[in-house]
Amino acid sequence: MTWRMPSETAPHARTWMAFPREGRNLGEGDTFKQTGYDSWTTVAHTIADFEPVTMVVDPTERERARRMLGGHIEIVEAPLDEFWMRDFGPTFVVDDERPGVLGAVDWIFNGWGDPEWSEWRLSADIARRVTDLVGAEAVRSLLVNEGGGIHVDGEGTVLATKTVQLDPRRNPFAHREHVEAEFMRTLGATKVIWLARGLTRDYELFGTKGHVDMVATIPSPGVLLLHTQTDPEHPDFAVTRDLRARLSEETDAAGRRFRIIELPAPAAIRDEDGFVDYSYVNHLVVNGGIVACGFGDDRADRAAREILESAYPGRRAVTVDSRAIFARGGGIHCITQQQPALTPEEVAR
């Protein structure tokens, strides 16, 4: 069999999420914790305007989730500690030789390298649970990886970051060749493009050490959307300049030189913890739409929507304020995971 991860622009059957629960990642203080519950809920309801959403909910959050999500979001109960579904959930794949067969890659998840603050052992089992729930074929992997650490074009190109998959706290014995071979087996990769690093804040205490979904994505084969920091005071000014120079010389699996579309960061460059990593690249593509991160900067948020709608013709962009999500270490793409549709009926539901 030959597994292939479809582009995120392929039709979806649904989006998967995980509801926040009490713990270190949700934060301290009732007011701050509520911003987490509110943000995850708003993202779920926004996606539900375009396609079905299934939310994994820890039993301790059952009543709150039912109250906040209402009847529009399907709820599945399972023990959770982390709630970043992109990273610990399954990566869905298809087999072009067996139409109608859904696969689910179950990476090893160790909480982004098992830092002392991470609570991950319950959520590490969610990929298996979701795989069983949807009746997918399990694609087991011994690679420590997270869904936010890869982007694909659906035609053999994979974006990855050296400081993620080759992180010694994740895969201490892996070499590039090992990772590329595993991406070929599980995702159908024929060309892996390695970024040297990610955004500056991603290397701080609560970071992922360079997830690509904060930096770049492939809206269509041969095209890259690239996060761009335009303020020289921000350390990511140099980071994104260097990434653009590197990627401008790169080709995809089909040998095409990339056309790069820049997605400028909003004007804010700091919060109370230092330089921010606010990125419009961390959006979710849904059936007929794009759920875009917003940062309270009307002009920049509007410009981002226009760029995204141009990059994804025929889709309507909707902005959701994501500052409370970013305050916890990620964005909209990080808290969601798309399940590809295998039949037109799945899309129509």
Rank of each mutant, 00 (worst) to 15 (best):
R21H: 10
G135K: 10
A254P: 03
L205T: 12
P59I: 05
G329F: 04
E146P: 05
R86I: 01
I332N: 13
T157A: 08
W107F: 11
P235G: 02
R197S: 13
E262T: 09
A78L: 04
R14M: 05
E177L: 12
A341P: 10
E116F: 07
R66H: 08
V179M: 14
G198N: 07
E146F: 04
A292G: 04
M214A: 08
G70D: 07
R24E: 12
H72W: 05
I73N: 02
M184S: 15
G89V: 05
P344V: 12
L159H: 01
R246S: 14
I332T: 09
A18V: 07
G296C: 11
E74T: 12
Y37W: 14
R128N: 05
S248W: 00
D153W: 14
T2K: 13
F83D: 05
I218C: 04
R129D: 10
I307C: 07
D297E: 12
E233H: 06
V281L: 00
E119G: 05
L122P: 04
P266L: 10
D271F: 10
T91Y: 00
E61V: 03
R256N: 15
A48Y: 08
D202M: 02
M68C: 01
A268K: 15
P11D: 05
A18W: 08
E177K: 15
E146C: 04
T240G: 05
R328C: 08
R302N: 03
G289S: 06
E262D: 15
T200M: 07
F83K: 05
R129G: 03
R349A: 12
W107Y: 08
G103M: 08
L224H: 08
P344C: 13
E82K: 04
I290Y: 05
H12K: 11
Y312N: 12
P235C: 01
R24I: 11
C334H: 11
D271P: 11
A127M: 09
H151E: 15
P313W: 14
V164T: 14
Q229H: 02
E250K: 06
D125P: 00
V320T: 12
W40M: 03
T200K: 06
R244A: 11
G23N: 05
A124H: 02
E155H: 14
V281D: 01
A292H: 02
E272D: 14
F275A: 00
E82I: 03
